[in-house]
Design a binder for these strands. Structure first.
Length: 271
DNA sequence: ATGGGCACCTGGCTGC
DNA sequence: TGCAGCCAGGTGCCCA
């Protein structure tokens, strides 16, 4: 479900319900996520005010008074604001109940997500320390991408999805951005021209911005924090459109596995 | 240092 | 209707 726009949509959606509010209780029904959810949080968090809600790559960072809660939604996670007394459903693993009666509820059927705690600068946490620039900032540019891709022999799509190169570009938006830039996903990264890199950096930014504006992509059942779907799914040009006509030239869209991930491209527009 | 492959886990869909 | 097989938005880790 969640790529960067979905995580950003979630961040914005939950902020007004929990920012500057105190945690009343922290409940874990299923601690077996990607890493065990620290059960000590049930003692640590209550009484602490949430002072900030940030995002770094696809990680949500809830700043409390003595530390930061690091939340990752994995492949299938979602966060919703519900009334604290609403009965949990099957995959509702963690509740953060606020003193205003609202509850931030984590649902994650596949349990690839994570809820961790750090008392250090969260950006220095081992999981975040090596993450590259945020794609929507100036530090991610055509120049940067050109330099970062030199002597790289992996596919450009694989490089785009490498968090050390650029933060938070997942499979859907890597496919979409490459289509918009007219670049084949399987091309060796190191062979892109300076101009290609400029077009690609621009396409990554515009694709992500457009998706955030639309409230994320609805595939299967993604909904935002108050249960509304995202509408970017209607804007997807290539992702999931194997054999269907390219929206620009009508050639059938091709599907190819690159680094174990489904990749889609127009054989004519991306040449 | 880089890149390839695997692992974690459940649910939904397809085809027999 | 049942069941096997395949697929899925992420990413850390191990190995060559």
């Amino acid at each position: 479900m969640p790529e960067l726009p979905e995580v950003e949509t979630t961040r914005r959606g939950i902020s007004s319900y929990i920012l500057h509010h105190k945690v009343h209780a922290f409940k874990v029904r299923e601690p077996r996520l990607r890493w065990p959810v620290p059960t000590a949080l049930a003692k640590i968090l209550p009484g602490q005010r949430i002072d900030s809600i940030k995002r770094r790559a696809k990680y949500l960072l809830l700043g409390a008074e003595t530390g930061t809660l690091i939340i990752h939604l994995g492949m299938s996670g979602s966060l919703h604001i519900v009334a604290a007394k609403l009965a949990p459903e099957t995959h509702d693993h963690v509740d953060i109940i606020m003193d205003n009666g609202q509850c931030l509820r984590l649902r994650d059927p596949r349990r690839f997500g994570a809820v961790l705690w750090t008392t250090q600068d969260p950006c220095q946490h081992p999981l975040l320390r090596h993450i590259g620039p945020e794609p929507l900032t100036k530090s991610f540019s055509g120049n940067y991408l050109y330099r970062a891709s030199r002597k790289r022999r992996c596919a450009i799509k694989t490089l785009l999805m490498n968090a050390r190169i650029v933060a938070g570009v997942g499979n859907i938006y890597a496919n979409e951005a490459l289509y918009h830039a007219g670049i084949r996903p399987g091309w060796a990264a190191g062979r892109l021209s300076h101009q290609d890199c400029g077009a690609l950096a621009t396409a990554v930014k515009s694709t992500l911005k457009q998706a955030i504006r639309a409230g994320g992509t609805t595939l299967k059942d993604f909904t935002n924090s108050v249960g509304q779907p995202g509408y970017f799914g209607q804007s997807l040009q290539v992702y999931g459109r194997q054999d269907r006509p390219c929206m620009r030239c009508a050639s059938p869209i091709k599907r190819k596995i690159i680094a174990q991930r489904a990749s889609y491209y127009c054989p004519k527009c991306q040449s």
